[in-house]
Simulated scan of single mutants.
Amino acid sequence: MKALFKVLLCTACLLAGSAYAAVSRDDASALAQKKTNGGRVMSVEKFVEGDKNLWRVKVLTGTGEVRAVFVDEATGKVY
């Protein structure tokens, strides 16, 4: 019985962990740098638009342009 409880508890922890799998601040920075061909990250902030939690990453591009790149915290999709 104890073994079954441990298995169920471990399974519940794994499922809960995957539900909260989110893109971290560092992941968002890396994705924004990739999107801007290696730009320099100036700031990273959480941003909410409707029902989506986004990271707003301000990047200084190689041409001197400041771009705001948005990264969906749940999916990693870059806008």
Rank of each mutant, 00 (worst) to 15 (best):
L4M: 13
T61N: 05
T61L: 07
V23Q: 01
G17N: 12
A21L: 12
L8F: 12
K35D: 10
T63E: 15
A28D: 01
L15I: 10
L54G: 02
K46F: 08
V78Y: 03
N37S: 13
A21K: 12
T11A: 13
V66M: 14
K77T: 05
Y20K: 04
S24K: 00
L31N: 02
G50A: 15
M1E: 08
T36V: 05
N37E: 10
S29Q: 12
E45I: 10
G62L: 02
L14N: 14
D27N: 02
T61W: 08
V23F: 00
E73M: 01
K58H: 09
A21E: 07
V57N: 04
M1L: 13
M42T: 02
G38E: 09
T36Q: 07
A19T: 08
R67A: 12
G38Q: 06
K46Q: 13
V78I: 12
A28M: 05
G50Q: 14
K46A: 10
T36N: 06
V41C: 10
E73K: 03
R67M: 15
R56T: 11
S24T: 15
G50L: 10
C13V: 15
R56E: 15
K52P: 03
K35L: 02
T36L: 08
Q33C: 04
K34D: 06
A16N: 03
A32N: 06
A19P: 02
V59M: 01
V78H: 05
V69N: 05
G38Y: 00
V59T: 08
A30H: 02
V44T: 15
S18M: 10
E49D: 11
R25D: 06
V59R: 11
F70A: 13
N37G: 05
A21I: 00
E49F: 09
T63P: 01
A16P: 05
A12E: 13
M42S: 03
K52T: 04
T63S: 12
V44R: 11
G76V: 09
W55D: 01
V71E: 03
D27C: 01
Y79S: 02
V48E: 10
V78W: 04
L31W: 02
A3T: 03
G76E: 00
K77F: 09
F47R: 14
S43A: 15
R56I: 11
E45H: 07
V69Q: 01
V23C: 03
V23G: 00
E65H: 13
T61R: 02
E73H: 14
K46E: 15
D51L: 11
L60T: 00
V44W: 08
T61I: 03
D51W: 14
G62Q: 14
C13R: 14
L4P: 01
T61G: 09
A16W: 12
L15H: 06
G38W: 10
K77V: 09
R40P: 00
G50S: 11
L14V: 11
F70V: 11
N37R: 05
Q33D: 06
Y20G: 01
M1P: 03
V7F: 06
K34L: 06
G50V: 09
L4E: 14
G17P: 08
V78E: 09
F47S: 14
V7P: 06
F70S: 13
K58V: 07
L15F: 07
A16Y: 05
E49R: 04
F47A: 13
Y20W: 11
V71H: 08
L15Q: 07
K6C: 14
A21C: 14
V44Y: 04
K46T: 12
T75G: 07
A21D: 00
E65Q: 12
V69R: 06
E73R: 09
Y79T: 00
G50Y: 06
